[in-house]
Amino acid sequence: MASETHSEGGSGLEFHPMDQFIVKPLFGDGPVGMFTVTNVTLWMAASVLAVVLLLIVGTSGRAIVPSRSQSVAELAYGFVYKMIEDVTGKDGLKYFPYIMTLFMFVLFSNVLGLIPTAFTTTSHIAVTAVLAVGVFLSVTILGLVKNGAAFLGLFWVSSAPLALRPVLAVIELISYFVRPVSHSIRLAGNMMAGHAVLKVFAGFAASALIAPFAIGAITAMYALELLVACVQAYVFTILTCVYLKDALHPSH
C-alpha cells in the first residue's frame, strides 16, 4: 500500500498506518498458528486484567459508602443493568452477565487500544465478527425457542396493508441477516479508521515543518478516539439489547 510507494522514494516521510494491526507472536518470530501466544493474547489478557482490577479488586471493600473504584464499578454495573431494563424489559435481565461481558470486553479493548503502541483487538473484523455472530446466533435461537413460529412474526409486519406485507417481509428478512455484518463492521471500522488516522498524523510529525500541526491533530484525534471508544462500546451493547428485545418480544 502506501508504504511501498513511499519507502521507494527514500524521503523522510514513511507511512505505515496499517502496520499497527499486524498480529505478531509475542515470543520468537515463528508463524502465527491457532494457539500461538501473540499480541492479541497480550491485549485480551490486559482487558481481562482491567476487568478484574475494576470489578473485583475495586469492589473488594464491599463498602456501604463506596470507595472511588467501587463507585466506578457500581456505575458500570448500573449503566448496563439499566440499559437492559430500559431496552429489553425486566425479562431481559436474565441475560445481564452475558451482555455485561460483551460491554466490558469491548469497552476495555477499545480504551486499552488507545495506549500508544498498544494493539487494538476490536479493530479486527475477525474479533468483532465472532462477537456479532455470537450475538446473532444466540438471539435468533433464543427467539425461536421462546416464541416458536411466532418469532417469524418479526418479519410479517401486521400493521402494514396486506399487499405490502410480502415485500416488507423480504426487506425485513434481509435487514435481519445484515445485522451481524453491520454490528461487527461498525465497531471494527470505527476502531481501525481512528487508529489509522492517528498513525498518518504521526507519520507527518517526522517533518519539522508540519510537526506542530501534526502533534496538535494527534492530540485532538486522540480525544475524539477516546470518545469513539466509549460510544462504540455503548452502541455495540445497546444494539445487542435491541436484538435481544426482538427475540423476546417479536411482535412489531
Binding site: D19, V48, V130, L131
Partner: peptide, 28 residues
C-alpha cells in the same frame, strides 16, 4: 510491513478467534 489490510489476513483469524473465545469465557 503489512500487505493490504491486516484485518483481512486469513492467516491470523484462527488465532484471534481462539484467544477471543478464551478471553470471553474467562471474563464471563
Amino acid at each position: 510491513s503489512a500487505i493490504g489490510m491486516p484485518q483481512l489476513c486469513g492467516d491470523w483469524m484462527g488465532n484471534q478467534i481462539f484467544w477471543l473465545v478464551v478471553t470471553l469465557l474467562v471474563m464471563f
